[in-house]
């Protein structure tokens, strides 16, 4: 097969080479800024993902430090917002776990605000969405489910295995139900991790695609994707909050299961 390059091919190739390329997933690319490893075994490099984790931590601290800069009995706007944030998580923990959830409150409070601010910081143009990394959400979800499993054994001993045996089910169905329960339990970290990761990835991908159209389309065609990005950014803020809320709620539910064995 002979290859004859015509002038049209060259022109098309040149146009294709200089044309903007749509790469909405580029936003999720983790790039190591400082490559560090501990004794050659543990990779503790600093990447854009890690930097934005720290930025999210800083934002959480700035928010609460500002809210409680000069705390008064009659709160101002920022203090009310900070108190609302505290009472919101306190309400979730108390409502789902009850009094026995008190020791877990700081952890759940931290988890919620870490995820929330990672979600919201990802909406800043040029930033990085930490929670769009499956490994990050999986680290949290697996830690939570593993902790609930170990804590269940710690509290109930071998009786905790009854958690996988649904009550009121005929004995004949047990060979079917117990594996289902076990699979259901094992699916918990997966669903928890994928839900957050997929929501963040999908939302930001959608925004990236729309922004691509904003900058590539002529002005008379760009207003539609631009308007969409404006609206969808609002939706993403809402989704960021909702996903942090769902992650927190399910964490409480799993811990409650290990305590009360429903």
């Amino acid at each position: 097969m002979s290859s004859t390059v015509t002038s049209t091919d060259v022109t098309n190739h040149a146009i294709a080479a200089v044309a903007p390329k749509m790469d909405p997933l580029h936003h999720f690319l983790v790039t190591k800024q400082v490559d560090v490893s501990f004794l050659g075994l543990l990779d503790i490099s600093i990447s854009n993902s890690v930097l934005w984790m720290w930025i999210a931590i800083a934002l959480v601290m700035i928010f609460f430090r500002l809210a409680f800069k000069n705390p008064t009995t009659v709160p101002g706007r920022m203090q009310s917002l900070g108190e609302l944030g505290y009472l919101f998580i306190h309400g979730i923990v108390t409502e789902i776990i009850g009094d026995k959830g008190r020791p877990f409150f700081p952890y759940i409070f931290t988890l919620f605000y870490f995820i929330l601010f990672c979600n919201l910081a990802g909406l800043i143009p040029g930033s990085f969405t930490v929670t769009s990394q499956l490994i990050v959400t999986a680290t949290f979800s697996m830690s939570i489910v593993a902790f609930s499993f170990v804590y269940g054994f710690y509290l109930h001993g071998s009786h905790y295995l009854k958690f996988f045996v649904p009550s009121g089910v005929p004995v004949l169905l047990m060979p079917l139900m117990v594996p289902i329960e076990i699979i259901s339990f094992l699916a918990r970290p997966v669903s928890l991790a994928v839900r957050l990761f997929a929501n963040m990835t999908a939302g930001h991908t959608m925004l990236a695609v729309m922004f691509f159209y904003v900058i590539t389309l002529p002005w008379w065609g760009a207003w539609l994707p631009f308007g969409f990005t404006v609206v969808f950014t609002g939706v993403e803020i809402f989704i960021g909050f909702i996903q942090a809320y769902i992650f927190t709620i399910l964490t409480c539910v799993y811990i409650n299961d290990s305590i009360h064995m429903h």
Binding site: L25, H26, S47, V50, I57, T139, F140
Partner: peptide
């Protein structure tokens, strides 16, 4: 999807846990 690149897993696992406990 860049999220599935295994070479960036290790440090993110470490720093996710470390950042959580720092916060």
């Amino acid at each position: 999807m860049p999220q599935f690149e295994p070479s960036v897993f290790g440090h993110q696992i470490f720093w996710s846990i470390a950042s959580f406990f720092i916060l």
